[in-house]
């Protein structure tokens, strides 16, 4: 009996916190983010309904069938009922998977053909480095041999390559608003993860691989990027910021930096 009320109480508290609690997603800043939220909300309603129904039924059965000396009904099952709920859940669950595929594809497949601003990303224990082609529009040659943090060459730029001279290197990532950006994610030691909550995207940086990640941020501002894959003792400090700027500001920043690095 007590258990039934406890189950119902917990269900109510969880519902209340989900509906009203202050702990929620930040507002999305991209079309993809908005779609994510929409899908999430739909899913939340459906699973929420199942959650409430199951807990209510459980509680109800506990109250209703508590022993009062009655004789239990001898039933070994009901094939029709089982067939019904098996096919219902199968359709529902598989439906979920298929419904979400569009959103997944929009991040990893659809935009691949469009032109994008390319940014080279190289993570290491426990910091981020971002590289933009300078005014010449070309990324310079790199080699791991030349990597040296103390001389300010985290990417291992090859000094002999003229295209490398004006490359802009930054420890935060700046992008122009409403522009498709393509990151080329690499790591030079262990696995790290690039996560921007407001964009609703997350991607591992795996040593030995170059992984593209595309997004279009639609709202100016500064957003935190916490490393989200365990990378060692400084994992919790491996943090940078994504700065979404107006087009003019971004161009100005890039030109200024390009001049400085030369």
């Amino acid at each position: 009996m007590g258990l039934a009320f406890l189950v119902w109480l917990l269900t109510a508290v969880i519902l209340y916190l989900t509906a009203r609690g202050p702990w929620w997603f930040p507002a999305p800043i991209s079309q993809h983010g908005a779609e994510f939220d929409k899908h999430f909300t739909t899913l939340l309603w459906i699973t929420g309904a199942i959650f409430v129904a199951a807990q209510l039924l459980l509680g109800y059965a506990i109250v209703r069938f508590k022993s009062r000396g009655q004789y239990a009904t001898h039933s070994e099952g009901n094939n029709k009922l089982e067939l019904l709920w098996t096919s219902a859940t199968a359709i529902l669950f598989i439906g979920f998977a298929l419904a979400a595929n569009g959103i997944w594809a929009s991040v990893h497949l659809d935009q691949a053909t469009e032109a994008a601003l390319k940014i080279d990303v190289l993570a290491k224990q426990f910091s981020w480095n971002f590289r933009y082609p300078g005014p010449d529009g070309k990324l310079g040659r790199t080699d791991v041999k030349f990597i040296n943090d103390s001389t300010g060459n985290p990417f291992g730029l090859d000094e002999k390559d003229p295209a490398a001279k004006d490359d802009v290197i930054s420890s935060t990532i700046r992008v122009p608003v409403n522009t498709l950006v393509e990151l080329n994610l690499r790591s030079r030691d262990v696995i790290h993860n690039f996560f921007v909550r407001e964009l609703r995207i997350k991607q591992d940086l795996v040593p030995g691989m170059t992984i593209p990640l595309r997004f279009k941020a639609q709202k100016e501002g500064t957003y935190e990027v916490p490393c989200s894959e365990l990378c060692g003792l400084g994992h919790h400090q491996m943090r940078t910021t994504l700065i979404v700027m107006s087009n003019e500001d971004f161009t100005r920043w890039l030109v200024d930096e390009g001049r400085k690095s030369r």
Partner: peptide, 22 residues
């Protein structure tokens, strides 16, 4: 039930795009 339903979220790459490793 409580733990299983959240699995339905994590089983979808589109949603895991946010929740992975949180």
């Amino acid at each position: 039930v409580s733990g299983g339903l959240t699995g339905l979220f994590l089983g979808q790459p589109a949603i895991d795009l946010y929740f992975h490793d949180t």
